[in-house]
């Protein structure tokens, strides 16, 4: 495998103008995904993870920064020149119903990328569509049916089949299982894992669900208020999180088998508005460790001392985590903090 990442974004910036002012959604975000790797992007609503996905795929061109795909800078390409890139990067969305044209039969939906990119003859396209539906676990008799005739899980399979049609190197999946029931969610996660095994593409997997992320990701990037606050191999992130926000997310994730919750475990406050982000560290108003320095100085995302594969944007990243609140490491001590 080559050492060059499949896709690498640096210092991406994106703002939107709203009636109430400028929304700084991405404040200099960088990330990279290697060939065949699954990078999970985690964060709460408003953290900018969806905008980041759209910026790297050039669906929403970023205001600044660079995106290199397979070594080629793509942010300055014209629409036409982006076409080969579009073929190699495909998206899967949260709401499979909204992203499938209700008036087209499934066969046409899946064949559409092939038609757009002028792939193969009619006959060849037919054959590839047949292979694709089989690959995602649907039957060939489903091809003539319409999206509304399928359940949510099946629709997500259709969306995945469409994304696979052009043999992409990267699939950007934005909350692909969030709208699905648990029993269906595991089916889709298994499908995505199987497809990666057989086809070797990479995933940028966006999710708010740490349980899902822990299961599927090789690496995890945690976003908060338009910046990445921590990035690490999945095993590290869940075992030795170094950003207090990561720890808060992990602590807040309900996991079966911990017994009834003890009060006061919840993190205080709410994410600040991107219209008026706090000065200094974006997390300091909610951070249990915040000191005066955090209010003044913005921490930079840097490798953690002694853990070169793990980076965190926290002035205290080199201190090991205080014990407690990690459902997956089963540390039992509880921090005692009251409700706001």
């Amino acid at each position: 495998m080559m050492s060059r990442p499949l896709i690498e974004a640096r210092d991406l910036r994106k703002s939107f103008q709203s009636r109430d002012g400028t929304l700084r959604v991405l404040n200099g975000v960088g990330l990279s995904v290697d060939k065949g790797e699954t990078l999970a992007l985690v964060g709460e609503s408003g953290s900018g993870k969806t905008t980041l996905a759209r910026a790297i795929t050039m669906l929403v061109p970023p205001d600044g920064g660079s995106v290199r795909f397979d070594g080629m800078e793509i942010t300055r390409l014209k629409r036409r020149e982006l076409k080969p890139f579009r073929r190699r990067v495909q998206m899967v969305f949260q709401d499979p119903y909204g992203s499938l044209n209700p008036r087209l039969p499934v066969g046409r939906i899946i064949a559409e990328p092939l038609v757009i990119h002028g792939r193969g003859t009619r006959d060849e396209r037919h054959k590839s569509v047949a292979r694709l539906v089989e690959a995602v676990g649907l039957g060939s008799d489903d091809l003539a049916r319409y999206p509304h005739e399928f359940s949510g899980g099946q629709r997500q399979r259709i969306a995945i089949a469409r994304a696979l049609a052009l043999g992409p190197d990267l699939i950007v999946a934005d909350e692909p299982v969030s709208a699905l029931d648990v029993s269906i969610q595991s089916q889709i996660l298994n499908l995505m894992a199987d497809l990666r095994e057989t086809r070797g593409m990479a995933y940028l997997f966006i999710s708010h669900d740490l349980g899902v992320v822990r299961h599927i990701a090789d690496r995890v990037a945690v976003m908060y208020l338009g910046t990445i606050v921590e990035e690490a191999p999945a095993a590290n992130l869940f075992a030795v999180p170094r950003h207090p926000y990561t720890r808060a997310l992990i602590a807040a994730t309900p996991v079966v088998g911990r017994g009834k919750r003890k009060p006061g475990r919840a993190i205080i406050g709410e994410p600040p508005s991107p219209l008026s982000p706090p000065k200094g560290c974006p997390f300091h108003p909610r951070c249990p460790m915040a000191v005066a320095m955090c209010r003044g100085k913005v921490p930079v995302l840097e490798p953690v001392h002694g853990l070169p594969s793990q980076s965190a944007a926290c002035h205290f990243k080199d201190q090991p985590a205080p014990a407690g609140n990690n459902p997956w490491t089963d540390l039992v001590a509880e921090t005692k903090r009251g409700e706001p």
């Binding site: 029993s183 595991s186 298994n190 822990r214 299961h215 599927i216 079966v256 459902p327 997956w328």
Partner: peptide, 15 residues
């Protein structure tokens, strides 16, 4: 089937 309850990676038991 809950992803958080099994070891990471591999296949999830599915209904």
């Amino acid at each position: 089937t809950l992803p958080g309850t099994t070891p990471p990676g591999g296949r999830l038991p599915a209904i």
